[in-house]
Amino acid sequence: MKNPYSKKRRLGTALLTVVLMVSCLLSACSTTGTKGSSGAQQATQPSGQASAAPHKIIIKHAMEETTLESTPARIVVLDNGALDNLLALGVKPVGAPTVQLEQPYPDYLKNQTEGITNIGTIDEPNLESIAKLNPDLILGSKDTHEKIYNKLKQLAPTVYVDTIGYTWKENLKLQAQAVGKEAEAAKLLDSYENRLKDFRSQMGDRISTTKVSILRPRADHVRIYLKESFSGSIVSDAGLQRPAAQQGTGLSANAGEEQIADMAGDVILWFSRDKEHLLRTKLVNNPLWLKLDAVQSNQVHEVSAETWLSGLGIQAANLVVDDLFKVLLKSK
């Protein structure tokens, strides 16, 4: 007599086999995923969602190495150069200082700075104001803010350039790296170099014979800016020459009425923040000043202190180049 349950057992076994096969197929599908061009397996993502891989960056800077776990979004800058550069890169900081308390941001940036919180002065940024902004990156300079570095890095990852001024191109590159805008920085520098190439071409043979003097008259002396200054570096990039007395290294040299000869040049470009300064109070009537070639040929030109002195970024650099075109070629 046949077992009445044998047929049922055979049916049950078949059904179990089918279930196991389907389960294995579903499991394989859920783990296989898709492959990119490199052939590596990638987990599938729900529709409309990107991969969650962070943009981790290790920045080697003037103080140490700093790790950024992702591209920063809330950035505080501690000087005009970093403010200028970030705005040029299309990144608006949440906080920035001014030269003097309650002073507005540089006029040449006025259309770009709406909504940025003043965090004090460049020399004395307010740590409490910075903390309230909840930054995820702070950009400063070692030569100005070294003493507060350890306090700042407790608030957010902090990246310092070594110095400000003639190193402005290297500073732009480092700051661009920190905010993930290296390609944009390269384009800005290429454009700057192309403008100077055009300037040199238009100057022709005059480029190797025109000596430019850069002066900042103060209340009781004149500061002569040398090649290792912001504006001095741009004049050098342009291919223009400097007078013999202005060939020294360093940022600047001081001169009084006794050193008027050191201020000479085919062209004198000057700027000042002081309302009353030596050029207006004494030099303008000094016989030695009046005998200078630039004075006699009407080649003494005032330029903006905001750009030539304290701009320190790529936008200010281009405005300095604008002035070179205006003064030496009478055009842009």
Rank of each mutant, 00 (worst) to 15 (best):
Q247R: 13
R242T: 06
M263V: 07
L279K: 05
E276S: 14
A244Q: 07
M263S: 02
Q259H: 01
W289C: 11
D266H: 04
Q259I: 00
A238R: 04
A255K: 08
L240V: 04
F271V: 09
V284N: 12
N286S: 03
I268E: 13
S233D: 10
L283D: 08
V295P: 09
A238Q: 02
A264N: 15
P287F: 00
Q299G: 07
E302C: 06
V295E: 04
L269Y: 07
L288Q: 15
E276L: 13
H277S: 11
L278Y: 03
K291W: 00
N285S: 13
W270E: 01
D237E: 08
D266Y: 08
L292C: 05
W289Q: 05
S252L: 09
N285F: 13
Q296S: 02
A253T: 13
G232V: 09
T281K: 13
E276R: 14
G232C: 12
S297G: 01
L290I: 04
I234D: 07
T249N: 14
A244F: 01
G265K: 10
T281G: 04
L269K: 06
K275D: 15
Q241P: 05
T249F: 00
L240A: 05
G265S: 06
Q296K: 15
G256T: 06
A245K: 14
A294S: 11
I234K: 09
G232Q: 11
L240P: 00
S236D: 14
G239F: 12
K282A: 10
F271H: 11
G248K: 14
A305I: 06
P287Q: 07
R273H: 10
E302L: 13
L290D: 02
L269N: 11
F271R: 09
W270V: 08
L251V: 14
D293M: 01
E257N: 03
N298W: 07
D274A: 12
